[in-house]
């Protein structure tokens, strides 16, 4: 369980990147989307249980790199099959009172998310209200790891998504999401996830979007420690910018950068990702 929290948080922060690719829009029957991605996250300072910034010791910090692979397939006009796997590399440096820096790291397959997305309703085929139900399967065991790759527990998530185009205004698009995630562990946590994004096309087959999102997690384990790994009761809000370019009709590349704006029992960090979107 050591270093568990911040590691999970980093995965949680990183994982939504691929979701922007299709959001609540159905992929379309018989068609597929493959999204390999590379994500990066780092933090040194943190917010305590009251949301007050605590500066990290010099030399301490946490860094995560993750390679992800998302696959989506349109089973029907409304229903998509989704699979997402992350393979993180976690690196943590803690500093003792004597000033000794202790580096730890671990890597391997992380959590796999498998499930379906179903378009509940469309509004003139311009906007869609969809529900997504996924199961979280840990592809690792945390025993004998210096730092954990995740909670190491099965979980599930149900999410509502409302996505659509804003043709009258500036030919942009929006995506609103709200969901509930539960890890099947005695200490949970129960997590509310939310995000809102707004995108616009940019001349030259580009698009840019801004996103605000976050999580609010609660657990019967309310304790707070400067050692973030023991915390499961947390919250954070992050803001990000995305920029994408379509190289061909089937291949696009998206770059994303984000920063955590506020939080409780969580790290203050920033990161980014690079995603290749391949439509088949």
């Amino acid at each position: 369980m050591k270093k568990l929290y911040i590691i999970c948080l980093s995965l949680i922060i990183l994982s939504p990147a691929w979701q922007q690719a299709y959001a609540g829009w159905p992929i379309g029957k018989y068609r597929s989307i493959v999204i390999p991605s590379f994500s990066y996250y780092t933090s040194k300072d943190k917010w305590d249980s009251n949301g007050i910034k605590v500066t990290g010791e010099n030399g301490s910090g946490f860094t995560s790199y993750a390679i992800g692979l998302y696959y989506g397939y349109g089973l029907t006009r409304r229903m998509d099959l989704l699979v997402n796997v992350l393979a993180p590399y976690q690196s943590s440096k803690s500093v003792t009172s004597a000033g000794v820096v202790t580096p730890q790291n671990s890597s391997g397959l992380g959590d796999m998310q498998v499930g379906i997305s179903y378009a509940l309703a469309n509004f003139g085929y311009k906007s869609y209200l969809s529900i997504q139900a996924t199961g979280i399967v840990p592809l690792y065991k945390n025993t004998n790891r210096a730092i954990a790759l995740g909670y190491g527990a099965y979980g599930s998530e149900v999410k509502l998504m409302y996505s659509g185009g804003i043709s009258r205004l500036f030919k942009g698009y929006y995506n609103l999401e709200a969901g509930y995630r539960r890890f099947f562990d005695a200490e949970g946590p129960n997590v509310l996830v939310y995000s809102a994004s707004l995108g616009v096309p940019v001349p030259g087959r580009n698009q840019a979007s801004v996103e605000v999102g976050g999580q609010w997690a609660s657990s019967n384990n309310k304790s707070f420690s400067q050692n973030l790994s023991v915390n499961r009761d947390f919250a954070f809000t992050k803001a990000g910018l995305n920029f994408g370019h379509a190289f061909t009709r089937r291949f696009s590349l998206f770059a994303n950068g984000f920063y955590t704006l506020t939080g409780r029992n969580s790290g203050i960090g920033s990161g980014g990702s690079l995603q290749a979107i391949v439509k088949i």
Binding site: G28, Y30, R31, I33
Partner: peptide
């Protein structure tokens, strides 16, 4: 119709 054609011609 636009979505239908894309489905039939497998256009992403």
């Amino acid at each position: 119709q636009n979505l239908w054609i894309r489905e039939k011609l497998r256009i992403p």
